[in-house]
Design a protein around this nucleic acid. Sequence first.
DNA 1: TTGAAAGCGTTACCAG
DNA 2: CTGGTAACGCTTTCAA
Lengths: 343, 343
Amino acid sequence: MPTTMKDIARDLGVSIVTVSKVLRNHEDISEETRKRVLNRVKELNYTPNLAARGLVTGKTYLVGLVVPDLLHPFFAEIATSLSRGLLKKGYCLTISTSEEDPELEENEINRLLSRRLDALLIATSNTSSASFERMQKQGPPLILIDRNFPGLGANFVGVDDEAVGVLATEHLIAMGCMRIAHLRGPDNSPGVGRLNGYVKTLAKHRLKSLAGYVSAPRTVDIQSRESGAELMKALIGLSPRPDGVFCYNDPMAIGAIHSILDAGLRVPGDIAVIGSGNLHYDSELRVPLSSIDQQTDLIGERAARLTLSLLESKTPPRNRTFIIEPKLVIRESTDRKKRTSEA
Amino acid sequence: MPTTMKDIARDLGVSIVTVSKVLRNHEDISEETRKRVLNRVKELNYTPNLAARGLVTGKTYLVGLVVPDLLHPFFAEIATSLSRGLLKKGYCLTISTSEEDPELEENEINRLLSRRLDALLIATSNTSSASFERMQKQGPPLILIDRNFPGLGANFVGVDDEAVGVLATEHLIAMGCMRIAHLRGPDNSPGVGRLNGYVKTLAKHRLKSLAGYVSAPRTVDIQSRESGAELMKALIGLSPRPDGVFCYNDPMAIGAIHSILDAGLRVPGDIAVIGSGNLHYDSELRVPLSSIDQQTDLIGERAARLTLSLLESKTPPRNRTFIIEPKLVIRESTDRKKRTSEA
DNA sequence: TTGAAAGCGTTACCAG
DNA sequence: CTGGTAACGCTTTCAA
């Protein structure tokens, strides 16, 4: 059994209240008592029980984060920068994964809710907003991350996904691609947003997306690379064959490049490839990968600031949305203006 | 304010105890009362307050994990498989990062301890075991992960680091390397263990590690790639130049390869490179990277099982150690015999 | 400057 | 089968 304030109070012949006050830096404690208490606290290695404190104050100083997949560097980075931001103000972050499974996600959320978090951040793998509507009425402040429900009007921090699609597609066109395909993502806001950007940009340039040029994986994110490889194989078989591919994310793009090279074709010579996410190792790949940078750490930072503002403000504030602007990063996989050496 | 058992009891004209019993599936409740309670629970969307429950039961069903860096896939994977294992038994995992900073780590640990975790798992970035000795006397069960303190005799799950060094070095020798260098890791058990394996293997084959052939980064893990690149530059300038390099981890190896190629040399032709960790994208790199697989998910799984056994057993059990055997994975970066290998 | 009493939401224990 | 009472470790309020 860990030490309690009661132990300290008994040892010192003071009341529990006095100990409590010392620990919270109350003014009205004599210098001497304060010292004696602090001393004993050190000696016994006492740590206040936050659960008990939270029970009476109503604040747990615990913020929850649910992401689909921690192995995806995108979410790992968000978690890291978010945690950094919250820690500064004494809030602790607890991270859970849903493994892209809506049911598991629901379980995790309930588990977290049972702990009476001060706030909850979610990059949801759910395609329905029903449970979030409920949570908005009841429960702690809710902040959606990366994946939004347009109708819901919740707090949201994420990238401008349509801009991602526009940037990528415009770039492929600028590189001279005429037949641009899209390996699309899941049926959530990033997947749909990026697809829209792609479609609009093609239309703007009076280019067509031929039959089979938009292709969707059966499973989601977690196995992006495998599905990218698989979908790309099918694309290669089409005629006319695409000469540029915009992939929903970098792992898919990596899989796509793998299939292209396996088929004896060159990147970007025969097919240019661009992804999204700008992962740390993009520049070290077989073919260094062009990508759309989503400013991931900024998302985490913004989310932290938004969360803190919700937590500090006395009156329940209006829901807010922060959209981060994506940026194009050009590497070899789309750089057709430069001769590329193939290994 | 969230719903409480009191609300439900009042609404239904039963006692709080009855509600509590229904929620914990006590036998001695009439079918009718049970139904009425369960109904109202649904209606009000009631979730039990785990903090309050934990206060009286002494169990929080919360397990803590502290890792140096979530962006490192090694730790992300451990976190994921660990969480999966614990969830099965209803335990929740809370993940924190120390960013390889011992002071930050100490803070995080205290924060977590304040929440009265049922168990604490740490991949420490501390080089001193002092605070862990204290924690072993007082506080929840402690499980060290990946990085051990040999003298401490704590619960530990990790890879056989000396075997990592042996496997890697033996492989380089088998590939015909005669002048093998080592980009070593930090001053903790993995860093030292891998170095030892390297040294012993060289000795066994009567090979020498020439002056400057063992080189250590100034900073730790977080910027492995940069330091790998930097250290490799220096190695290239030595004469005689090494023809094989064993790197502490894969990011370092990636940096090293970068420098070698930049210098106009070939991998593995001029210098063979092997890392450790066998990251998911090793096979998609500029030069597919040979590596030592640490069976990362197995580490997480084992750690979960060990944790659960500590939690379930009534008597405080003896500390246990699980050592996972590493495995060699051959790819292009060391394949001087030009075999056809892909992973 | 100090502390007694009440209460936070829950469970343990035991009596009815 | 049901429920009163005490307790978990802490903070709040108010009186001394």
